[in-house]
Design a binder for these strands. Structure first.
Length: 609
RNA sequence: GGGGCUGUAGCUCAGUUGGUUAGAGUGCCGGACUGUCACUCCGGAGGUCGCGGGUUCGAGUCCCGUCAGCCCCGCCA
């Protein structure tokens, strides 16, 4: 049908006959002259009709063209004058033939937009997704996505990883996110679950001797959505035998490094910086710090609780802390901007934020009263405050303290990110990759009133904390919260991008961890008996990681939402607007599945659109 | 489950203190136009003001409910 894709046209084709196909992007009808831009995924080229080379019938057909018609043209490729190459590029086709291959009704949402025109409402874009996806800008995202995927595949294949698919119809996940359930027709009343991740299968593949596995795997979780969360998403999932933390981290850095080199043509600095979970919380207030922001938390409790200032003195004899940040250049913030910080701090669970400015005249602001003579010099030394700086502090309970109620790390995290945006020069460009290691093995779930695995129940405890595990398994849970694990996260620009761990491959240790988790023998056998059983027959030590593929592509593409890098995404309410899912099914079908429909009260009609 | 924002022509939006026939740009239809590239110019059609109820002499505008989309909290081992 065609000689070339539009993006393949080059100087070699000038003065030659070409046959091209594509969509009518935008038409300009000048009477005897007609121009339009022909578009396909690879590019755009102007097609021109002039009585000099086109007959009247062809001209008439060109005048009748509408946006998004699919057409085939034949003509001579011509170079265009350099001063006229705006928009449509270097070449034009002087068309002698024009054939409408497939006519388009006026599209409900435009594919071509002027630079100033806002994009159609997202609802419209999703309803007519096949039109939305024709937009060259969004096609770029999918080209990028493809290239990242290919780069990852090649990298892992070259290093001996086998790509192996794992089941979509599987068993319920006992903990964690809500499962999507699929009723079994053959076994009425029983359900498959769609996998939240291939976690158990990839460990079984290690026991199966596959040595190194990867999969660009779909994962499904029935949880509420966000801009960076979809119910079905894709992970680059991998697992390696006879490997520990260092092997996984080095491999991952190599993989991301190759992606950056091949797709973005940039060299990433490796190895990535590392910090422990404890350090990340202490210095940045979060387990996924954005290292591009040049702000760091300091603890000034010992100094400031000696000041003549009631809020500070109130921390004496408690485990409450006074922590804050020096904001270089922050004194330039307006009163209104500083007032806004109260809101930010409250959002993070603090009662408010105390602040002090240092100007050439000295300290000013709410806690300057605490900085009496002597104290001011010590504060300045401890904080490093220069003229023009601002210091913000919150007072209360932090994670490392005792007592009830929310901890204040999130308040400092929010303040840090807010101020990183608000104050000029605190936010560096670049790629802030980093490893966070030694996550706690368990975290307390106040609702369930028990300890839950913070990564998953098969995570290897940190070797230095083995005794704490044994103690906790024996019933002494005083230090349960302090047990660290061999779990690690890769963080990129403040986003959690990948998460993994060294796994337990020893039945005795696994049983101990289950006991700490309050999972009985019976329960463990019922829930993951098949995995535990496999460990009895020679399980290799193994470790792995999973990378959020959509999220990585989103950030690489500079897209504001996962929806811009997933071809057919769901709405915030987990609906598919194009094909209209979920939808009701006839009672007969439910009957086959052994299901009975029960409607909520007052809900008498199927959802409309 | 909770909070916030949005919903007016195919699309993007304006619409004052509640007041006559709800507007603009673009797209669409018709006409003119020999180098456009956001072509230009002339004319025309096009409205369930998301939906339901209420207040009012009168509602796009005020109130209540509801649906949908988006952002956030909870949730996401």
């Amino acid at each position: 049908m065609r000689d070339e894709a539009l993006g393949s046209l080059d100087r070699e084709h000038v003065d030659r006959q070409v046959r091209l196909v594509g969509w009518v992007h935008r038409a300009r009808d000048l009477g005897s002259l007609v121009f339009f831009d022909l578009r396909d995924r690879t590019g755009r080229v102007q097609v021109s009709f002039d009585p000099e080379w086109a007959d009247e019938e062809t001209l008439a057909r060109a005048r009748a063209l509408g946006a998004e018609d699919v057409v085939r043209v034949e003509g001579t490729l011509a170079a265009r004058p350099a001063d006229a190459q705006r928009e449509v590029g270097e070449f034009e086709v002087r068309a002698t033939r024009l054939e409408v291959v497939s006519e388009s009704e006026p599209p409900p949402i435009p594919v071509y937009r002027t630079p100033e025109e806002e994009a159609p409402a997202e609802e419209r874009r999703l309803r007519y997704r096949y039109l939305d996806l024709r937009r060259p800008e969004i096609q770029q995202n999918f080209i990028l996505r493809h290239r990242v995927g290919q780069s990852v595949r090649a990298f892992l294949s070259e290093r001996g990883f086998l790509e192996i698919e794992t089941p979509l119809l599987t068993k319920r996940t006992p903990e964690g996110a809500r499962d999507y359930l699929v009723p079994s027709r053959v076994h009425p009343g029983e359900f498959y679950a769609l996998p939240q991740s291939p976690q158990l299968y990839k460990q079984l593949l290690m026991v199966a001797g596959m040595d190194r596995y990867f999969q660009i795997a779909r994962c499904l979780r029935d949880e509420d959505l966000r801009a960076d969360r979809q119910p079905e998403f894709t992970q680059v999932d991998l697992e390696m035998s006879f490997a520990g933390t260092e092997d996984v981290l080095a491999l991952f850095e190599g993989m991301v490094g190759q992606v950056w080199r091949e797709v973005l043509d940039e060299e990433l600095a490796t190895p990535f910086p590392r910090m422990t979970h404890e350090e990340a919380l202490r210095r940045f207030g979060t387990d996924k710090p954005d290292l591009r922001i040049d702000l760091e938390i300091v603890d000034l409790t010992d100094l400031l609780q000696e000041a003549d200032f009631r809020v500070f003195q109130g921390t004496k004899g408690t485990t409450d802390r006074i922590r804050g940040m020096r904001i270089p250049g922050g004194a330039a913030l307006s009163r209104r901007e500083i007032d806004q910080l109260q809101e930010v701090a409250r959002e993070g669970g603090a009662l408010g934020v105390l602040w002090v400015k240092r100007t050439e005249e000295g300290f000013s602001g709410p806690f300057s009263r605490a900085l009496t003579e002597g104290m001011d010099a010590r504060f300045q030394e401890a904080s490093g405050m220069e003229p023009g700086d601002l210091f913000v502090a919150v007072v209360g309970r932090f994670r490392d303290g005792q007592g009830e109620g929310p901890a204040l790390e999130p308040a400092l995290d929010l303040l840090r990110r807010h101020l990183g945006r608000a104050v000029p020069d605190l936010h560096r460009a670049g790629h802030g990759w980093l490893w966070v290691t030694d996550f706690p093995l368990l975290e307390w779930d106040p609702e369930a009133e028990r300890w839950l695995a913070s990564h998953h129940p098969f995570t290897m405890p940190h070797p230095d904390d083995r005794e704490l595990v044994s103690a906790a398994a024996a019933g002494n849970d005083a230090d349960v919260g302090r047990i660290r694990s061999l779990a690690y996260d890769a963080v990129y620009n403040g986003h959690e991008m990948a998460s993994g761990s060294v796994r337990i491959h020893d039945s005795a240790l696994q049983e101990e961890v289950f006991r700490v988790l309050g999972i009985g023998e019976e329960e463990a056998r019922e829930k993951f008996g098949f995995l535990l059983e496999s460990f009895r027959y020679g399980a290799p030590p193994h470790a792995g990681i999973a990378l959020g593929f959509d999220r990585l592509v989103m950030l690489m593409a500079g897209a504001p939402s996962l929806r811009d890098v997933i071809a057919f995404p769901k709405t915030t309410a987990a609906r598919a607007l194009l094909e209209r899912a979920p939808s009701e099914v006839p009672d007969a079908e439910l009957d086959t599945l052994g299901l009975v429909r029960r409607r909520s009260r007052g809900d008498t009609d199927p959802p409309r659109h």
